[in-house]
Design a protein around this nucleic acid. Sequence first.
DNA 1: CATGAATGAGCTTTCATTCAT
DNA 2: AATGAATGAAAGCTCATTCAT
Lengths: 203, 203, 203, 203
Amino acid sequence: MAKSSRNSKGDKYQKILDAALKVFAKKGFYSSKVSEIARLANVADGTIYLYFRNKDDILISLFEVEMQKVIDRLEEALAGEGDPRRKLEIFALTHLGMVDSRREVAEILQVEVRQSSKFMKDYHNEKFIQYLNIIASIVEEGQRQGLLRADINPDIAKRAFFGALDEMSVYWVLSTKRSFSLETAAQQISRCFLSGLLADKAD
Amino acid sequence: MAKSSRNSKGDKYQKILDAALKVFAKKGFYSSKVSEIARLANVADGTIYLYFRNKDDILISLFEVEMQKVIDRLEEALAGEGDPRRKLEIFALTHLGMVDSRREVAEILQVEVRQSSKFMKDYHNEKFIQYLNIIASIVEEGQRQGLLRADINPDIAKRAFFGALDEMSVYWVLSTKRSFSLETAAQQISRCFLSGLLADKAD
Amino acid sequence: MAKSSRNSKGDKYQKILDAALKVFAKKGFYSSKVSEIARLANVADGTIYLYFRNKDDILISLFEVEMQKVIDRLEEALAGEGDPRRKLEIFALTHLGMVDSRREVAEILQVEVRQSSKFMKDYHNEKFIQYLNIIASIVEEGQRQGLLRADINPDIAKRAFFGALDEMSVYWVLSTKRSFSLETAAQQISRCFLSGLLADKAD
Amino acid sequence: MAKSSRNSKGDKYQKILDAALKVFAKKGFYSSKVSEIARLANVADGTIYLYFRNKDDILISLFEVEMQKVIDRLEEALAGEGDPRRKLEIFALTHLGMVDSRREVAEILQVEVRQSSKFMKDYHNEKFIQYLNIIASIVEEGQRQGLLRADINPDIAKRAFFGALDEMSVYWVLSTKRSFSLETAAQQISRCFLSGLLADKAD
DNA sequence: CATGAATGAGCTTTCATTCAT
DNA sequence: AATGAATGAAAGCTCATTCAT
């Protein structure tokens, strides 16, 4: 079993993605070299092109695979819960929880993929839309149940809520000294969105 | 006509920044070529290096110049207003207003600068922090006046609010068909943050 | 046919050095273009960087490879000889002999490598020192045997002798019309060093 | 007299040469920038081209001016002396003495000018030949007087003698720890050439 | 005479991608 | 399927030189 690596034997596809994740997270997409991904994956440079069309394709595939994991994990977390208000809180906790547990994934999802025209214009980004629409669904559900106000457009709300969480993630990934925990951040953000900042309200 | 030289105009620094703005917005930083910026600025390639240390420096300078304009414009818009609740709404309107009126600037501020280590880790990004802290100040002011709830950390709120607006901008810049106006978006986002999504509240 | 690849031959390292030798000799190091070396070596520009770190490294490698050949050839020529007086003459003949048989090598060894800080200060130039020390050894040997005067510092003598030969080489390489042969030059130089210029002496 | 420098007023030619001397000695010809010479000379970049055709011309002019000084100094030193044997010693002492007193000049004369085809092939180098021929004249004079052996070709001797001194200079300029003085070196080199290395001779 | 901003050709070097084995 | 040596286009940057003022 001399040369084979941790992974059983033939799933080079996964080995390459694993390597790409580390390299992209460390250096950023443009500064990453295909040959470094190959080296880390214990694979020849040329082998990468048997599994991926080009360097962009690695990033996009990585994004989709990881996004799917995030979506799965999120749906699992939301599964038992009926109250859309609580669901938003769970969304926030799960989203930010991922930043801690899978920091490299977070760095790439945040930064690399929304990076530039190449990825946000040309590439339609189905998974991301799917992720955003989970929020929209929750809001719509709440509105149908009369629990959330009907005069807020769910398409606006989903982006506002996601944006708030995402900006927090960026901060979390980049900063070193932080005065609050991710749980606190998640709670405060969901509280903001649910109850608002105005003072004269019960929570 | 003080500084003019062989070339008619003279204010090459600005011409280069203007050109860079367009090129970066269209192609993204990494895919932009210095020579294209030069061409668009009607300037020789080498001239760029009389005004900027390197390609990175162009982006950073562009960011700081434009960010300063945004801050100035914002402070002007906030000048007459005393109520922090209204200030948040003005912030949202101004921020999103800029996306429409200066779309290219918006694209760069959003995408390029939050990009990656090169710009968010190494480069401290004073102007961005300054911008964020305008939100924090408004929130703190509201808290001191008893108008905004005291149990929300202004450092979290500022990022949540900015993130919500920024995500909306990204959507605005990238999408072509939109079902709502920017004014609507601004109002809905500030309403979300002030009054929350919960249904059982007066506005 | 072990290593061969797309290209017929395979021994690109040597092909590049051969090409570099010609180009450097013709144009001088600074005026030589890596792309011209590549063209002459029938190799792509990038290929050069698989074998050498940079342009400097080509020169240094060339120097060391050729210097080693010179040293080997010299030691072979000195092998059978016991008399240090005769050894100096052989050294001179071999050194100048090389100038004729490998003129391009001579041009580079002479001119490029003694050039300037980049190559004589930063790069320690082991091979050259080794070459010089062959002279010193011969002198010391002669002194021990009582054949050569003891009041001449071998470290001075080695440089004087080498310098005399080297200057002759420079002349030989650069001039076109010469009034004497290299053998004559070698003999006269070694005679100068052994017997001196003074008239009242037996040879 | 605000801006004018040490030199009286208009001899920018000299100021440029002085600056070039320092810059070339420090960085080497190819790594020296015309603009740095200009800066050091307190002169605009363009001004240099009023006095010199191009960068090469600065080096060549510098060479000729300095070589002339060396020749003048040498002829002065040789003036009173009639004995060609003593003249050779004076030549050696003067040549090496210059290395100490005008190290920068030495570095350039040695290294930069003999550097490459550009300067030794294309440029005929009259002054250098003149300098060499002083040695040849001394040798011929000695031969006519019967003091030096007639079977040594003065054209070979001149190069051998110069080469020995030059190599010593190179060593002197480049090395930091030396086990002998320049005077010793000069004496030993001239003794070598006069009396030879052979042991069985009176000095 | 003097200036120095502007030029732009031309350099080295990188690296995604290919393809003969 | 896998390799990895080879490719070569492409890019950022430098700097000798010019010329309008």
